[in-house]
């Protein structure tokens, strides 16, 4: 018999957000990355072909947390003291499509680095790699508000994605992004309504809803994955149903949360039944991130090269044209 397939059509569409700008667009990037633009749930081309597949960004930090996992040091130890070298390795050796630069050092409890120093770091990374940048602040509101305007100015025209805007602290970031032509990464604590409210506040300041990417919370495999998964799925469905304040591409910072899990880093000697920690850590990161693909994640930010490579293979496999599509 011929099975009549159930196709879903949606009234809404997810905004397409382009990160990076080439020389002809006023920037210096060799290529740009566009995410979103979907008219269907992920990997269902029979419902609607998606113009943009999800992408893998790799995270680079300007200062390492004290308890940075050994498994990451083993992979990245030779470059992790220089954000430019680290970024270059991610792009050249590991095929990162974007670099997500996290500016930890300005945090007052960390190194209290100056906005000038942050700007110098951002410049060095821009020069080191041809790919577009995502730039994250240190999370200390007052300090971020000193650093952000300087960073957006220094990268004017590069069309970076800069974050994170939170309900408690978004105005300075939005004004700076608006002035210098960047997009905003808007974060909510695993809550659809707060995410929507934040988007309303941000767009009321004049930034177009097509220049926002959502970061709906942090969770990892075994530690709240299901919450973030369902929030992303609900946001994506609401966006497809026509809610323009939830119709943005989504990003997940999977590395940081995954490596907090004891399952990712406990040595095999301490927990023999869990098997090799050198495989377990990257697997924890990769499965956290790739699970979110099915809930609608558009940008996976990863750290371990094996996790990044596995995520890229998964995206390619899932996006391949299928015989039964």
């Amino acid at each position: 018999m011929t099975v009549e397939l159930v196709r879903e059509t949606w009234p809404g569409k997810i905004f397409a957000v382009t990160i990076g700008a080439t020389a002809s667009e006023g920037g210096t990037r060799a290529r740009t990355v566009t995410v979103g633009g979907h008219a269907a749930l992920p990997f269902l081309p029979g419902d609607a072909l998606s113009p943009n597949r999800p992408v893998v960004a790799m995270e680079v930090m300007d200062a390492l947390p004290q308890d940075w996992p050994e498994a990451l040091k083993a992979q990245l130890g030779d470059v992790c003291s220089s954000p430019a070298d680290w970024a270059r390795k991610c792009v050249e050796a590991y095929g990162a499509e974007l670099i997500c630069l996290r500016l930890n050092s300005p945090h007052p409890d960390w190194m209290d680095a100056s906005p000038d120093a942050a700007v110098a770091t951002v410049r060095s990374v821009l020069e080191a790699v041809p790919v577009p940048l995502i730039i994250l602040g240190c999370g200390h509101a007052d300090k971020d508000n000193e650093v952000w305007p300087r960073v957006t100015e220094a990268t004017k025209g590069e069309r970076c994605l800069i974050g994170v805007a939170t309900p408690e602290n978004y105005k300075t970031l939005v004004v700076s992004c608006l002035a210098d032509g960047h997009s905003v990464l808007a974060e909510s604590p695993i809550d659809v309504n707060i995410q929507k409210q934040l988007n309303i506040l941000i767009t009321e300041m004049g930034i177009s809803p097509g220049r926002i990417v959502l970061h709906p919370g942090n969770a990892s495999l075994g530690y709240g994955l299901e919450y973030e998964y369902s929030i992303m799925e609900r946001i994506r469905i609401a966006g497809l149903q026509g809610d323009k304040m939830l119709a943005q591409p989504m990003l997940t910072l999977s590395a940081e949360e995954s490596w907090k899990a004891k399952e990712a880093k406990l040595p095999e000697a301490a927990q023999p039944a869990w098997g090799s920690e050198s495989r377990r850590g990257p697997a924890w990161e990769a499965i956290t991130a790739t699970s979110f693909l099915h809930a609608g994640a558009d940008i996976l930010v990863l750290m371990h090269p094996e996790a990044a490579a596995a995520a890229r293979r998964a995206i390619a496999d899932l996006s391949a044209a299928a015989a039964t599509a």
Binding site: L221, G222, L225, E263, A273, G275, S276, R279, I287, S291
Partner: peptide, 12 residues
């Protein structure tokens, strides 16, 4: 499955 694979899958 190696234990590290199985642990990740049963957790997911």
């Amino acid at each position: 499955l190696e234990p590290w694979q199985a642990l990740a899958l049963v957790t997911a």
